[in-house]
Write a protein that binds this DNA or RNA. Structure first.
Lengths: 206, 206
DNA sequence: TTGTCAAGACGAAACGTCTCGTCTCTTCAA
DNA sequence: TTGAAGAGACGAGACGTTTCGTCTTGACAA
C-alpha cells in the first residue's frame, strides 16, 4: 500500500478495476457497516474476482481506508490540481475555526459518510498498523493544516506563543470528534461555535 | 439485560456461571481483541455451553460491555457499599481535575484494560443501541460525577456560571480520550496537566 | 514470457439454532 | 410437612450456513 512499486514486465494493474473496487467498498461499508462488509460481497458487486482484491489489499481495514481516502480526495490537503490547500484565513481566527468545525459537523450529518467513517474508525481502533497509515495519510495532513493556521495566529499575537500546537488542535477539535464517536450529544453548528469560543479563550495570548 | 426479570418457576440463573463467563470474556478480549473474540472460544475457555451465553447476551458487543462493566465495578460512581462516590474536591479545581485525568491516563497504560476498552469501543462505534447502553451504564454516570464537580466550582465562582456543563466536560476530557482513540500522540501526565490548564483558562469566570 | 483478471472450488473456522440428558429450584396437592 | 411434577438453567455438541483466505484454471494484454 505505502509503496505501490511497478513491476517490470507482464500486464499492468488496471486503474479502472482499482477504482471500481474502492467505490464499491465505500458503498458497501456505507450501507452495511464495517462488520457487514465482506470481501466476497465487494467482489461480487464490483464484478471482480476475490483474488484481485486479496492481491492488492491485505485485509478489510486497508481496503476501507483506501476507499475513504479515494472518496475524500479533493477535500484533503491537496486540491484537485495537487496544490496544497489551506484552512481559511480571514484574519478572524475564531470565525475561521468555526467555519472548519461547522463543515466537519455537516460532513458527519451525511449518513453514508458517517457510516463509512465509523467503519474506518472501527478498523483503526484495534489495528495499530492501520491507525498509523490513517494518521499518515488522512489525519496527519489535516492536522498539519490546522497547526499552520494556528501558527499564523501565534505570529499575529492572537494565540499564546508558548502553547504546544498539537495540544491546541486537540482542544479545539477533539470535543466534537469525541461526541461523534460516542454519540454523546447532538452535533450542531451552535455547539461547534461554543467549543471554539471557549477553547480559544483558554489558548489566547495573555 | 436492562430488566432482568425473575421467572416464577424453575431453576434460577447461576450467578457464578455469569461471573465466570464475564471474567473469561474480559480475558479473551484483552488477549485477542474484539475481532479475535469468539463466542465459541469464550464458551470453551469458561467450560460452558454456547447456548448459555446466547441465552443471556444477544451478541458479542453486549457481552463485552458487561465484561468491562463487571471488571470496572468498584471504580465506578458507586463504591463497594453502593454509596455514590464523588470526584475529589479539595477546593483546588485544577489539581482535582488533573488527578482524575492522570488516573485515566494510568488506566490506559494497562495493556489488558487498553485492549478490552478498545474492543468495547470497536463494538460501540458501529452499534447505536450498544452505544446507548454504554452511555447509560458507564459513560453517563461518570459524566454526572464530572458535572457535579464542575457545578460546585461554578457555585464557588471558579467557573463561568453561564457555560454549559456538558461542553465543559468535553473540553476537559475529550482531548485525552481522542488521543487514546486515534493513537495520535503520547498520553503523559504532563500532557494531561497542560490540557486541564488551558481548558480551565477557557472556562474560568471572567 | 510474465503478470493481471474473472470465476469459482476448496477446507477451516465461526456463526446462531437446535436437541439432548442432567441438574436444581419452585409450586402445589396430599 | 412433604414429596411428586413441572419449569428452566446448564454442558455438550450436532446441524446447516456463511465467510474466510488460498489455490487453480483459462483468457488476455504487455
Amino acid at each position: 500500500m505505502a509503496t505501490e512499486t511497478q513491476r517490470s514486465t507482464g500486464r499492468r494493474r488496471n486503474p479502472a478495476t482499482r477504482a471500481t473496487i474502492l467505490a464499491t467498498a465505500f458503498d458497501v461499508v456505507a450501507e452495511l457497516g464495517y462488520a457487514g462488509l465482506t470481501i466476497e460481497k465487494v467482489a461480487a458487486r464490483a464484478g471482480v474476482g476475490k483474488q484481485t482484491i486479496y492481491r492488492w489489499w491485505p485485509n478489510k481495514g486497508a481496503l476501507v481506508l483506501d476507499a475513504v481516502l479515494e472518496r475524500t480526495a479533493g477535500s484533503g490537503p491537496e486540491g484537485a490540481d495537487g496544490a496544497p490547500a489551506e484552512l481559511p484565513d480571514t484574519g478572524d481566527l475564531e470565525a475561521d475555526l468555526i467555519a472548519v468545525l461547522v463543515a466537519t459537523v455537516a460532513e458527519f450529518a451525511d449518513p453514508d459518510f458517517d457510516r463509512a467513517l465509523r467503519g474506518l474508525t472501527a478498523a483503526i481502533i484495534e489495528d495499530a498498523e492501520l491507525a498509523g497509515a490513517y494518521r499518515e495519510r488522512l489525519d496527519g495532513p489535516m492536522r498539519e493544516l490546522k497547526k499552520r493556521r494556528l501558527r499564523r495566529a501565534q505570529e499575529v499575537g492572537q494565540l499564546d506563543p508558548d502553547v504546544d500546537l498539537d495540544l491546541a488542535v486537540d482542544l479545539v477539535f477533539a470535543p466534537v470528534a469525541q461526541r461523534w464517536t460516542e454519540r454523546s450529544g447532538d452535533l450542531t453548528p451552535d455547539g461547534a461555535r461554543a467549543v471554539v469560543r471557549h477553547a480559544l479563550r483558554g489558548l489566547a495570548a495573555r
